[in-house]
Design a protein around this nucleic acid. Structure first.
Length: 927
RNA sequence: GCUCAAGUGGUGGAAUUGGUAGACACGUUGGACUUAAAAUCCAAUGAUCAUCGCGAUCGUGCGGGUUCAAGUCCCGCCUUGAGUACCA
C-alpha cells in the first residue's frame, strides 16, 4: 500500500502522548487562546460520526492557533454524572461509577484514534470527589450570599444580617421572596429558627416549598429546561406539577445581568434570542385591586396599564392564595371542584387543552381603582401562578385570551384603544380581540386621546400618585430547582440541625457520595441517599439526602480546566489571570437554555466573589449542526417476500422498509447480505432494474432503529483518521445540519492519496526537489496560505478542504515536487490532517512536531497578476471576457472594451447609453 | 399561534463587500491502462433549443420592487427545520 495511514496515525498518536506535545502551561510571554468543547456525557453507545464534528472543528482551530503563535489551552473531560448510568444501575445493580468508568474508557479510545490535540493532563470528571469538592464549595458560597440590587452583585449574607440588626429590612433592596417589612426590633425578637427561615428568602441557594416539575417515572424533580413539551428531556416521561420543599438557586436575581451580558458576547443571534425569550423580560405595572367586602388586595401585573378602563373582570390562578377567601358561599363547591381538577392535571394534559376555555366565577368582586366599578373575580387555569402575581385584570377587547374567555362566559367587552381616524365599533360584533400595541386611548377618562406609549406612562404616574401601583419589570425566568431525588449526583454539603439546614465547613469537603444497597427511593419515598448507613455528620446530624442536578458539575468546569489539579483552591489566581475565559466554545444548541444559562449565572457569581476576571465565561460560541443519517429503503411487494427496485416500485403495492446501510453501496443493495441479515429475508426475491436492486433513501435522524448509524471506528479503519477529519469538515458548514453521505468520503480519500503522491516518487519513496519554485507554483501556494487562514478564522472549514483539493490538483498538473512549495503546504494542512503532516514534516528532516511550526507568511506579490480578465456584460448579461492590464484606469478600460470587435458585435452600431467599469471586477454596458 | 433559521444542478455544497451563479467533491456517461478487476488518469455533465465544435433562451422556493447589475438588498407569500407554548 502506497500511503499507509494506519501505521502513520498510530505512530504519531503515540508520539504526541509520549512527548506531551499538547500540554498547556502558563507562558506569560505568549498570547493565550482557550478553545473548549462542551464535554460529553459518556453514554454506553459510544460515539457516532455526529459527535466528533465539533471536536474536529475545535481541534483544527486549536492547532491552527498554535501554528499562529498562540499558547493554546484545549482540554477535554467528562460530564460523568447522569441518569442513564443510574437507570442502568437500577436495572442491573451495577454501580454507576463502574458503568461510567467503562464508558469513559471507550470514549477515550474513540477520541484518541481521531488524533485530537487535547491536553489530557487537565482532564476533569464531574463525579470525581476532587472535582465535585469545588461544586460543593460553590454551593456553600451561594448559600451564604444574597443579591444586592443596589450594587447589582452578590454579597455576603453576614452583611445583610448586620443590616437587619441595625435597621431591619426597610432600606434593603435585594433579590428576595421576602415581602414583609420588619424593623431591627422585630428581627431581634425572632428566634434563631425564625431568623434562619427568613434568611432563606434572601440566600442565593435556598430551600423553599415550591411548585416543581415532578417526574414519577424518574422519581425526581426536574428543572424547567429539562422538561420539553410536558415530558422529561431524558426518557420522555410525563411530568406533573407538585408542591415540594426543594433547594433552588436564585438565578432570577441575575435576570437583568444575564440579559445585558448577551450584548457583550459573540454568539449567534438565534441563540441570544432563545436566551432572551427564556429570560422573558417585560415592562409593565403592578396594580392593586381592592376586593369588595374582604380586607385583602389583589395585586396584578399588566404590560398595558393604559387599558385599565377596559378591565371588565379579574382572574386568579387556581393556586392563588386568595381564592378561598374571595369565593362566596354559593360558589364555594363549584370553585373548589374546579381548583382541585385544575391542580391535578398533568402538564401535558393542560398543554393539550390550551384551546379549551375553562374557569369558574368566585362570587367575589374586585374594584377597578380608576373607575370604582365592581368587576367579577374568576378563577381560571389560563392564568399561571408562576408568572407575575398569579392574578390578572382582564381586558377582553385587547387581549386574545381574555377575549376568548369573555366570549365564552358572556362577560362584557369594552374597547379602550383605537387607531387614529378610525371609528370604534361594537366589540360584540368582533371575531377577534383588537391587540394593538400602538393606538389611541378611547373611553378611558383622563387617558382618552393619548397615544399608547404616553397613555402607559400617564396611567403609571396616576397609579403612583394614588398609591395603588407602580411601574415594574417582570421576568419569565424562574429560579432553578437544584434538588434531585437521585443517587448519581453530587451530595449537598448540608446537614440539618433542629430542622434548619446548615452547611458543612469547607475543610470537610468533599462530602463523598456514600454507598447504598439499592439505587431506588426508600419505602417511605425518601431519595436513595437515605439508604446509606450512617448518613450523618460526626456530631450525628442528618445529612441532606437529595443530590445536585446535572448542570451543577457543568456550570464551571471551564474554570477548573485552568488549574485542574489544585488541591487548595478551585483554581489559582495566577491561572485565571492568564487564561481569563474561554475564547472559543463549541457545542450543540440543545444547551441554549440549560447549561449555557446556568454557566453564565455561575460564572457571574464567581466573578462577584472576585475569583475571576471576566463576567462572561464564553466570549465566542458556535453551535455545530447535527449530522443526520441517510436511511436506505427496500420496497416489499405487499403480501409477498418479493422486493422491488426503487425505480419500479410504483408498478406494485409496496411497503417501505428500512435496510441496514452497511448492505448498501451507492444506493445499490447487496442482495446476498440482505438475505443473510434476518431469517425472514432468507428467501427474499428481487425485482431488479438494469440488473441491480436500487434502494430509496431519505435523510433522518441518525439512530439504531433506522439502521443508518455511521460508526467512526469502521470509517477510520477503512480510510484513516486524517481522511475522516477532512471529510467531516468537507460535508458542509459547521453550523448547519447535514446528512452523512456514505459515498462522499471516497473523494476525500482520493485527495489525500493524491496529496501524498506529491511528495513521493513512483516507488513510494519520499522525494522532493530543491529547485526554485516557478511563479504559478508560488501563486497557488500563496493563494492557499491566504484562503486557509481566512477560512479558519471565519470558521468556514468546508471551503478550506476545497482549497486544499484545488491546490493539490494544480500542483499535480504542474508536476511540482519542490520543497519550497510542499514544505509550507504541509504546515497548512497540519491542523486538518495532523498525522500525515507530521510524517511528511519528519521526512523533510524536522525533529520537532509540526505543531511547533510557524504558519507560513502570505506574500501578496506572489498572487498579484498583471492582467485581469474582465467579464463584459451588456445590460447585466455576461457576453465575453477581455484580458486587460490591471494598471488601466476605468476610462482606458472603457475605451479598450468599446473598441474590441466583440463589443462591436453586441452594440450593433448603437452607441452605449452608459458604461460602468468597476476596476478588477466587471464592465457593464447599457444599451 | 409566536420567535428564529434555511430554501442554489441528480446529491453535499461554493459564490466573504450587490459585480462572471454552480468552485470543490459525490454520482452518472464515455474513454485510456489491464487477461480481468481494483487503483489511477483523461473527457463530458444545470435545463431547454440548435443548421448539436457556431451559439441562443431560461435558470438560485413563488410574486413584486430597488439597481447599470440581485442567490445576495426591500415588500408580500409558500415550504421545511428548530425553539417555545395560555407569560397578562
Amino acid at each position: 500500500m502506497e500511503y499507509n495511514f494506519n501505521e502513520i496515525e498510530k505512530k504519531w498518536q503515540a508520539y504526541w502522548a509520549e512527548h506531551k506535545t499538547f500540554k498547556a502551561e502558563i507562558k506569560k510571554d505568549k498570547p493565550k487562546f482557550y478553545v473548549l468543547d462542551m464535554f460529553p456525557y459518556p453514554s454506553g453507545a459510544g460515539l457516532h460520526v455526529g459527535h466528533p464534528l465539533g471536536y474536529i472543528a475545535s481541534d483544527i482551530y486549536s492547532r491552527y492557533k498554535r501554528n499562529k503563535g498562540f499558547n493554546v489551552l484545549h482540554p477535554m473531560g467528562y460530564d460523568a454524572y447522569g441518569l442513564p448510568a443510574e437507570q442502568y444501575a437500577i436495572q442491573t445493580g451495577t454501580h454507576p461509577a463502574v458503568t461510567t468508568e467503562k464508558n469513559i474508557a471507550r470514549y477515550r479510545q474513540q477520541l484518541d484514534q481521531i488524533g485530537f490535540s487535547f491536553d489530557w493532563d487537565r482532564e476533569v470528571r464531574t463525579s470525581d470527589p476532587q472535582y465535585y469538592k469545588w461544586t460543593q464549595w460553590t454551593f456553600i458560597q451561594l448559600f451564604h450570599s444574597y443579591f444586592n440590587n443596589e450594587t447589582n452583585k452578590a454579597d455576603k449574607i453576614e452583611h445583610l444580617v448586620s443590616k437587619f440588626e441595625t435597621e431591619g429590612n426597610t432600606n434593603v433592596n435585594a433579590a428576595t421572596s421576602q415581602e414583609e417589612i420588619f424593623t431591627a426590633e422585630d428581627w431581634k425578637a425572632k428566634t434563631e429558627f425564625e431568623q434562619q427561615e427568613l434568611l432563606m428568602n434572601y440566600r442565593l441557594a435556598y430551600l423553599a416549598n415550591t411548585t416543581v416539575n415532578w417526574c414519577p417515572a424518574l422519581g425526581t424533580v426536574l428543572a424547567n429546561d429539562e422538561v420539553k413539551e410536558g415530558l422529561s428531556e431524558r426518557g420522555g416521561h410525563p411530568v406533573e406539577k407538585r408542591m415540594m420543599k426543594q433547594w433552588l438557586l436564585r438565578i432570577t436575581a441575575y435576570s437583568q445581568r444575564l440579559l445585558d451580558g448577551l450584548n457583550t458576547i459573540d454568539w449567534s443571534d438565534s441563540l441570544k434570542e432563545t436566551q432572551k425569550n427564556w429570560i422573558g423580560r417585560s415592562e409593565g405595572a403592578s396594580v392593586e385591586f381592592e376586593v369588595k367586602g374582604v380586607d385583602e388586595k389583589i395585586e396584578v401585573f399588566t404590560t398595558r396599564p393604559d387599558t385599565l378602563f377596559g378591565a371588565t373582570y379579574m382572574v386568579l390562578a387556581p393556586e392563588h392564595e386568595l381564592v378561598a377567601q374571595i369565593t362566596s358561599e354559593e360558589q364555594k363547591a363549584e370553585v373548589e371542584e374546579y381548583v382541585t381538577w385544575a391542580k391535578n392535571r398533568s402538564e401535558r394534559e393542560r398543554m393539550s387543552e390550551v384551546k379549551t376555555v375553562s374557569g369558574k366565577f368566585t362570587g367575589g368582586y374586585g374594584i377597578n381603582p380608576l373607575t370604582g366599578q365592581e368587576i367579577p373575580i374568576w378563577v381560571a387555569d389560563y392564568v399561571l401562578m408562576g408568572y407575575g402575581t398569579g392574578a390578572i385584570m382582564a381586558v377582553p377587547a385587547h387581549d386574545t385570551r381574555d377575549f376568548a374567555f369573555a366570549k365564552h362566559f358572556e362577560l362584557p367587552i369594552i374597547q379602550v384603544v383605537s387607531q387614529e381616524g378610525e371609528e370604534p365599533t361594537d366589540p360584540a360584533t368582533w371575531e377577534d380581540s383588537y391587540d394593538s400595541k400602538d393606538g389611541i386611548s378611547i373611553n378611558s377618562g383622563f387617558l382618552t386621546g393619548m397615544k399608547t406609549k404616553k397613555a402607559i406612562k400617564a396611567a403609571i404616574h396616576k397609579m403612583k400618585e394614588m398609591g395603588i401601583g407602580e411601574g415594574t419589570i417582570n421576568y419569565r425566568l424562574r429560579d432553578a430547582i437544584f434538588s434531585r431525588q437521585r443517587y448519581w449526583g453530587e451530595p449537598f454539603p448540608v446537614y440539618y440541625k433542629d430542622g434548619m439546614p446548615q452547611t458543612l465547613n469547607e475543610d470537610q469537603l468533599p462530602l463523598e457520595l456514600p454507598e447504598v444497597d439499592k439505587y431506588l427511593p426508600t419505602e417511605s419515598g425518601e431519595p436513595p441517599l437515605a439508604r446509606a448507613t450512617n448518613w450523618k455528620t460526626e456530631e450525628g446530624y442528618q445529612l441532606e439526602t437529595n443530590t445536585m442536578p446535572g448542570f451543577a458539575g457543568s456550570s464551571a468546569y471551564y474554570y477548573r480546566y485552568m488549574d485542574p489539579n489544585n488541591q487548595n483552591e478551585y483554581f489559582s489566581k495566577e491561572a485565571v489571570d492568564y487564561w481569563q475565559n474561554v475564547d472559543l466554545y463549541l457545542g450543540g444548541d440543545e444547551h441554549a437554555t440549560g447549561h449555557l444559562l446556568y454557566s453564565r449565572f455561575w460564572g457571574m457569581f464567581l466573578f462577584d466573589l472576585g475569583m475571576t476576571v471576566k463576567a462572561e465565561p464564553f466570549q465566542k460560541l458556535i453551535n455545530q449542526g447535527k449530522i443526520q443519517g441517510r436511511s436506505s429503503f427496500v420496497y416489499r411487494v405487499n403480501g409477498t417476500n418479493k422486493y422491488v427496485s426503487y425505480g419500479l416500485r410504483k408498478e406494485y403495492q409496496t411497503t417501505r422498509l428500512h435496510v441496514d446501510i452497511s448492505f448498501v453501496n451507492n444506493d445499490v443493495l447487496d442482495t446476498e447480505a440482505f438475505k443473510a441479515w434476518r431469517a425472514e429475508y432468507a428467501d427474499a426475491e428481487f425485482i431488479l432494474e438494469d440488473g441491480k436492486y436500487v434502494c430509496g433513501w431519505e435523510v433522518e435522524k441518525m439512530s439504531k432503529s433506522k439502521y443508518n448509524v455511521q460508526n467512526p471506528d469502521h470509517l477510520i479503519e477503512k480510510y484513516g483518521a486524517d481522511t475522516f477529519r477532512l471529510y467531516e469538515m468537507f460535508l458542509g458548514p459547521l453550523e448547519s445540519h447535514k446528512p452523512w453521505d456514505t459515498n462522499g468520503i471516497e473523494g476525500v480519500f482520493r485527495f489525500i492519496r493524491k496529496f501524498w503522491r506529491l511528495f513521493h516518487n513512483e516507488q513510494n519513496e519520499f522525494e522532493v526537489s530543491d529547485a526554485e519554485p516557478t511563479k504559478p507554483e508560488l501563486k497557488i501556494l500563496h493563494q492557499t496560505i491566504k484562503k486557509v487562514a481566512d477560512d479558519i478564522e471565519r470558521f468556514s472549514f468546508n471551503t478550506t478542504v476545497s482549497q486544499f483539493m484545488i491546490c493539490a490538483n494544480e500542483l499535480t498538473d504542474l508536476k511540482c515536487n519542490k520543497k519550497a512549495i510542499l514544505e509550507p503546504l504541509t504546515v497548512l494542512i497540519a491542523s486538518y490532517a495532523p498525522h500525515i503532516a507530521e510524517e511528511l514534516w519528519q521526512n523533510f528532516g524536522h525533529t520537532e512536531s509540526i505543531s511547533d511550526a510557524e504558519y507560513p507568511k502570505f506574500v501578496a506579490e506572489h498572487v498579484a497578476e498583471n492582467n485581469f480578465s474582465y467579464p463584459v456584460s451588456f445590460n447585466g448579461k455576461m457576453r465575453f471576457k477581455m484580458e486587460l492590464p490591471v494598471t488601466m484606469n476605468p476610462k482606458e478600460v472603457e475605451a479598450a472594451v468599446l473598441e474590441s470587435p466583440d463589443a462591436e458585435k453586441w452594440l450593433g452600431g448603437k452607441a452605449p447609453k452608459k458604461v460602468i467599469v468597476v476596476p478588477k471586477r466587471i464592465v457593464n454596458i447599457v444599451i
